[in-house]
Design a protein around this nucleic acid. Structure first.
Lengths: 142, 142
DNA sequence: TTGTCTATATTCATTTAGAATATAGTTATC
DNA sequence: GATAACTATATTCTAAATGAATATAGACAA
């Protein structure tokens, strides 16, 4: 048997132009929630439920926020050492697992910002192209 | 047995603030490729392989573009009547399936632009917050 | 006529994510 | 002090999205 199609050997390391972005794996370009959480935790610890409020500040509506996703994401980030957690002592109500960003998390965040800048530019490019083709329906409709 | 958690009845129709965005289903916020294709086809028909070049104009690198995804996406868009296709007659080389945008596709694109505007603003908000917290490392590092 | 290239299409496995459900301590209410 | 309602965290189930590999086939060159 002979190979049907040859591999030009260019299929790997295709990460947005970065050899290895945050968290190494080729990001499928949507861990926006993750970045938001890192920014929120940057200067202030927080717990799962409580972070929802902060996320609203980034445009997430309370309805579209999925609590499972939120907790799952936080645990995953801890496994990757981007954040660390501890059980809050005392305090009223059920105990809370409080998260803090790690220095690794901060470095990661820094790289994320570059990716987001790029993503923003792509969106702008697309919008401009669209406006061009449709005759600038809206001029800087900011 | 009794129900453990009550449902506050607010879990549905959580689509970015739009009752029903393009293509009705709650978009998981990443069909950027799809939108790029619609913009490319807006004023000029194109075929799968040939569209790759145009996509590069939006920041996709040739390596990160996945051909399977490209074709899969085009067929899906046709199934949804956002584009239509025909086999190119004559011409050198293997036959090509040429895609054209439909009027439905154009309407869809219009809605996508709103979503992208929103997405852009979210990113900006996030970047600003980050810069705030880290002390404006880069001032409009455009 | 064999091999290579262009072009399209499909299959397979993994990842991502939403919905639902599970667990459990806290506080209010009767 | 039993029960209900609430806060908080966690996991399971399923479906959608996606990358990689593979399949198919005609055109063209050697």
């Amino acid at each position: 048997m002979k190979e049907v199609a040859k591999n030009d050997g260019k299929k790997d390391s295709a990460v947005f132009g970065h050899g290895k972005g945050p968290r190494d794996k080729k990001h499928k370009m949507e861990r926006f929630l993750e970045v938001c959480l890192l920014v929120l935790l940057y200067d202030e610890a927080g717990y799962g439920y409580g972070l929802i409020e902060g996320l609203e500040g980034f445009g997430f509506s309370r309805e579209e926020l999925n609590v499972s996703t939120l907790y799952r994401t936080l645990r995953k980030m801890e496994k990757e050492h981007l954040v660390s957690s501890f059980w809050e002592e005392g305090g009223p109500g059920p105990r809370r697992r409080v998260y803090e960003i790690t220095s690794e998390g901060k470095g990661n965040l820094d790289q994320w910002m570059n990716i987001l800048e790029g993503r923003k530019k792509r969106i702008e490019k697309l919008i401009n192209k669209y406006d061009e083709k449709t005759g600038f329906r809206k001029e800087e409709g900011e």
